[in-house]
Amino acid sequence: MFDGFEEFDISTTGASVHGCRGGSGPPLLLLHGIPETHLMWHRVAPHLAERYTVVATDLRGYGDSGKPPSTADHEPYSKRAIGSDQIEVMRELGYDQFSLVGHDRGARCSYRLALDHPDAVLQLAVMDVVPVGDAYNRADKDFASSTGNGRSSPRQNRPRNSSSTRHRPIWSTSCSTLGPR
């Protein structure tokens, strides 16, 4: 599936991480979302490998990566712990700095990794995830009412299961609107 890529298993402080690496150029780490594994990148990675050294891993708890026992606070599966695994993998592969792309859960782990290791992450791209800070900062009464999920939502004037109330996005925006309000 990843022609020209080499598979690896690297032991980190918290778990064994499975992945693959291929291509040449600046290093680029790809982190998958839920419920995928590194295999989700199989159509994109070969194209990226024409310009980058692509590293795609299974996050801890997914695919062929280790699945350490959890704890009461779930710390072994925190975004910080998963991000630390990825830093260790990239350093083991010889990359102290790299670009990072995360999808869904991988995006959340990417945020944390970039915050904890700003000198390691040269560029960050996240996909299919709402920026947490923006979501919380904008989650006011109007936002709750517009989603149809607020308890005080003025839905009583609309039919309960009409097409106008079903399939309404909870968050719909473009990057240009994510700036200051």
Rank of each mutant, 00 (worst) to 15 (best):
Y52C: 09
T53K: 15
T53V: 11
V54G: 04
V54K: 08
V55Q: 03
V55G: 01
A56P: 03
A56Q: 01
A56F: 04
A56H: 01
T57Y: 05
T57Q: 02
T57C: 06
D58Y: 05
D58P: 11
D58A: 15
D58N: 12
L59N: 07
L59T: 14
L59W: 00
R60F: 10
R60G: 07
G61P: 12
G61K: 04
G61D: 03
Y62W: 09
G63D: 03
G63K: 00
G63F: 02
G63I: 00
D64R: 05
S65Y: 11
G66Q: 06
G66M: 06
G66V: 07
K67S: 06
P68L: 10
P68S: 14
P69N: 14
S70Y: 01
S70M: 11
S70W: 00
T71C: 01
T71I: 00
T71R: 10
T71G: 05
A72G: 12
A72S: 07
D73A: 04
D73M: 09
D73Q: 08
H74G: 12
H74K: 15
H74S: 13
H74A: 13
H74W: 13
P76E: 12
P76H: 12
Y77W: 02
Y77I: 02
Y77Q: 14
Y77S: 04
S78L: 03
K79R: 10
R80Q: 06
R80Y: 03
R80L: 09
R80T: 09
A81H: 09
A81D: 01
I82S: 13
I82K: 10
G83C: 07
S84A: 12
S84E: 09
D85E: 06
D85N: 04
Q86T: 06
Q86G: 06
I87F: 06
I87V: 11
I87M: 04
I87T: 05
E88N: 01
V89T: 01
M90R: 06
R91Y: 02
R91H: 08
R91S: 07
R91A: 11
E92V: 04
E92P: 00
L93F: 10
L93H: 06
L93W: 10
G94N: 03
Y95C: 06
D96F: 01
D96T: 14
D96R: 15
Q97R: 13
Q97A: 15
F98M: 00
S99W: 08
S99C: 07
S99Q: 12
L100G: 08
L100V: 00
V101E: 08
V101F: 13
V101M: 14
G102W: 14
G102Q: 09
H103R: 12
H103P: 09
D104L: 00
R105N: 11
R105P: 04
G106Q: 08
G106H: 05
A107T: 11
A107Y: 13
R108M: 14
C109R: 02
S110Q: 11
Y111R: 12
R112L: 11
L113S: 03
L115N: 08
L115W: 02
L115G: 10
D116A: 12
P118R: 00
P118Q: 00
D119K: 14
D119W: 01
A120D: 11
A120E: 13
A120L: 03
V121Y: 15
L122E: 15
L122H: 14
Q123D: 15
Q123R: 10
Q123I: 01
Q123T: 03
